[in-house]
Amino acid sequence: MADNPYTVLGVPQNASQDDIRAAYRKLAKELHPDLRPGDTAAEERFKAVSAAYAILGDADKRARFDKGEIDASGQERPEPTFYREYAGADPSGRYRSTAGHEDFEDISDLFEGLFGQRRAGGGGKMRGRDRRYHLDVDFLEAANGARKRITLPAGGSLDLTIPAGVQNGANLRLKGKGDPGVGGGPPGDALVEISVTPHPTFSRDGDDIRIELPIGLDEAVLGGRVETPTISGRVAVTVPKGSNTGDVLRLKGQGIRRKGGAGDQFVTLKVMLPDDPDPDLEALMKTWRENKRHDPRAKGTES
């Protein structure tokens, strides 16, 4: 039988759900095994705390526990696996960082070249080092996906697939494309950081694409079919009669296409007058103003 969950979390029987959550978070910050990689005792305590919170953090389960319908041990959750077990065992050590321990070399020549450097010592197997590259990709290539080739400084080249919808700053990892391993060890990886060049027309919002589309006064008043660019070419879109600057049309599925779904394109209309003053239009407007009294500031501009 496990300990009373109220005791484990250190809260009174009448604690509110908020108090229970706060108590759990405080203990989790203190005990989470990934924040204490070498501390085995913390793991046991954290498991007890998690089990207690699994009951008390859920108002229904808590009520059933209070009524004695379930007991504290009846809530075993699947054994959590912590990151530290993988980080400690991963032979590639690709997330491990040994940056910034050069100061150790001042203490002893034992440390010279020890940290972070992989030297072929004693014929041991050693994984090759990762190589970092940088690649500029234009907006449409990033949106639609592309095949790219990087020419390597040391000669040779690296082919990579830019997945559709890649984000600015994303890191692509190409397995085995880094430095060769030593003594029969596996090669390192190539890490390619992607910079996406902005586009003058399109902008991105997740998998959705946004553009501002100029329309003429006649198209705004009368409506009609106009062409709009999309990331995969031009398409015709219907501007409804009486459209205004700021109105948004949604082109379903014309955003970034991925496996299992596509984003949309949102077109924000912008009514544009002709570049040069037009006498006919002015004459029409004079008549219109005399006959109609429309005040566009009647609402929405209260001060």
Partner: peptide, 30 residues
């Protein structure tokens, strides 16, 4: 996707999309 683009996770990049292994999944849980 956001966390991958932030570099919190660095899955292997294959032709048909990112490939995660167990350490990536454990790191995601973290």
């Amino acid at each position: 996707r956001i966390w991958v683009s932030e570099g919190w996770l660095v899955p292997e990049s294959a032709d048909d999309g990112p490939v995660f292994d167990e350490i990536d999944v454990a790191r995601l849980r973290l």
